[in-house]
């Protein structure tokens, strides 16, 4: 499986988890919201780390582009992590409005980020890392597989 397909599929998985967490919080079902939010954050973190620890370094080694697109994606991961922190803080306070506000902001940030990755970066990864696709994809898959079943 190409990196594009693999990572795109996991984006969809993160979207599903996001929607479930948001739906629970909007009903003020805080137990469910805690659970779904934890599931979402786990999926998101696994995704970020598969990129930051496996795919991006491999891409940077293969192309020599250290300060290029991967750096920008790392910065956006940081922005999204701040919003996730805001969501969790609101969850602790059981503050529905603040949770949904941070969630909505994260949603747009996340979708813009995904589109950039899916349309530009992943095709670049597929080309640059074609030689190591089999071994690297297995590692990435293993990292992401955990978040599919961990509830």
């Amino acid at each position: 499986m190409t990196f594009s397909l693999l990572m795109q599929r996991h984006h969809k998985h993160c979207d599903e988890a996001f929607a479930a967490a948001e739906a629970a919080a909007s009903k003020c079902d805080w137990t469910q919201a805690q659970e779904q939010c934890a599931f979402f954050v786990r999926a998101l973190e696994d995704h970020f780390r598969a990129e930051e620890e496996l795919l991006f370094p491999a891409f940077e080694n293969a192309t020599g582009m250290i300060a290029g697109p991967t750096q920008v994606m790392r910065m956006e991961h940081r922005q999204m992590r701040e919003l996730v922190a805001a969501m969790r803080a609101a969850l602790e306070r059981k503050d529905e409005a603040d949770f949904l506000g941070a969630a909505q902001t994260l949603l747009i940030m996340m979708q813009q980020h995904n589109l950039k990755e899916e349309n530009i970066l992943y095709p670049m990864l597929d080309r640059a890392l074609a030689a190591q696709e089999a071994s690297l994809a297995a590692q990435v898959n293993e990292r992401l597989a955990a978040s599919f079943c961990a509830v």
Binding site: E82, L83, A86, A97, D98, L100, G101, A102, Q104, T105, I108
Partner: peptide, 12 residues
């Protein structure tokens, strides 16, 4: 610092 989120800039 945390900037205000979208809904804090304008409430639903």
């Amino acid at each position: 610092m945390m900037p205000p989120t979208m809904n804090q800039l304008l409430e639903e």
